[in-house]
């Protein structure tokens, strides 16, 4: 008889369940993205997932790891889907494929695979693409009012990139506002058709859809409230403190409900592998991301800043962990730092 020790009863949770719940929670966001910005997102998602799964299988073979066992956990699908919904919808297929490749090979497996990566793979890929291919990465957002058909999306992706492209593309609201607020007043900027009654047209719905998905994750206890709440709260506080003047700064509504804010708050920053670990640590970590998002968006060169903010806080997570350990039962105070003084 093999020796089995306690606990004998274990819950029926599994990594696959966690990952596929995440995929399911992404569905409302994806549906909204596709509905508003067209099929490009679906095409990108399919490319990203296919490439990621194939590469993961290949690398598992090279690393002499059980392929089926690790593919089954579904973590790579989540990574690919997160990357694909962060990318602009109208980009050539190879950009998506390269992104997927970076995520799988460099961000995940070179560090040891599932659970070992210090940086969020999707964000590593996104940041590398953004730095390497800035034009493609910033000017290919879809125009809300003219949607390409599924066939158009495929054509754009595989080959004829220029076919009627101008009709479909436009800048993101965050980008647009920041570019124009220098010379126009807030009222004038908001006249642009890309803005809606509240925040930006389409983007608000998308953010709401990701928010719904995020709330589902919260309800299912896949994530805890700490990171999303502290992240959103810190963006809110910063934009109220510094950006109350709409003629100089992007307004709070745009910060919270356009760009990737909700996606970042509920799906990207909450990646447990790369986040700080204790409840207190998560609060610090989320607040740090929110702070960096606001700083980079406002005073930096990038209109949206999730990737860099997340990566920077990934760096800090181990340090945060050392100083945010919870107080243990029976202890008068928490053990902080690197020394145990009893």
């Amino acid at each position: 008889m093999i020796s089995i020790t306690s606990p004998h009863t274990v819950g029926q949770n599994s990594v696959s369940k966690v990952m596929f719940t995440l995929v399911a929670a992404l569905v409302p966001g994806y549906a909204c993205l596709i509905y508003i910005f067209g099929w490009g997102y679906l095409v990108n998602a399919l490319i990203a997932v296919t490439v990621a799964v194939a590469l993961e299988a290949l690398i598992l073979v090279l690393r002499k790891r059980p392929v089926g066992f690790f593919l089954k956990d579904g973590s790579i699908i989540v990574t690919a889907l997160l990357l694909a919904c962060a990318l602009p919808p109208i980009v050539p297929w190879w950009l998506v494929a390269i992104g997927s490749g970076i995520a799988v090979i460099f961000a995940k497996h070179l560090f040891g695979g599932l659970g070992q990566n210090p940086f969020n793979p999707a964000m590593v890929a996104y940041a590398l693409l953004l730095v390497s291919l800035p034009v493609l990465m910033t000017s290919r957002w879809a125009n809300v009012d003219v949607l390409p058909s599924f066939a158009d999306a495929l054509t754009i992706s595989f080959g004829h990139l220029d076919k009627g492209l101008d009709a479909f593309t436009g800048a993101t609201p965050l980008d647009h506002y920041k570019l124009n607020i220098g010379r126009l007043t807030a009222d004038n900027v908001l006249q642009d058709p890309i803005y809606g009654a509240f925040a930006a047209k389409g983007w608000m719905q998308i953010n709401l859809a990701f928010l719904v998905g995020g709330l589902v994750l919260l309800a299912l206890r896949i994530i805890t409230w700490h990171i999303p709440v502290s992240l959103l709260a810190s963006i809110l506080v910063m934009s109220v403190l510094f950006g109350s003047d709409g003629d100089a700064f992007v307004p709070t509504s745009l910060h919270l409900f356009s760009g990737s804010t909700m996606l970042a708050a509920f799906f990207i920053a909450t990646d447990p592998v790369t986040a700080a670990t204790s409840n207190k640590g998560k609060l610090v970590y989320g607040a740090g991301i929110g702070l960096l998002i606001y700083i980079i968006r406002t005073w930096g060169n990038y209109p949206d800043a999730t990737a860099f903010a997340v990566l920077l806080m990934n760096f800090s997570a181990p340090l945060i962990d050392h100083y945010t350990r919870p107080r243990v039962y029976g202890h008068s105070k928490a053990v902080k730092g690197f020394k145990n003084d009893g």
């Binding site: 274990v10 949770n13 966690v18 659970g115 070992q116 206890r221 805890t224 670990t277 409840n279 243990v328």
Partner: peptide, 29 residues
């Protein structure tokens, strides 16, 4: 009723253990 243990996946630091620990420890760490 109580199935034999299955092969474990790597820790993904999801923190569910921390939420379950009655002593306030960080089992993942």
């Amino acid at each position: 009723e109580i199935p034999p243990p299955i092969i474990d996946n790597p820790c993904i630091r999801c923190g569910m253990c921390e939420q379950a620990c009655p002593a306030g420890l960080l089992p993942q760490q």
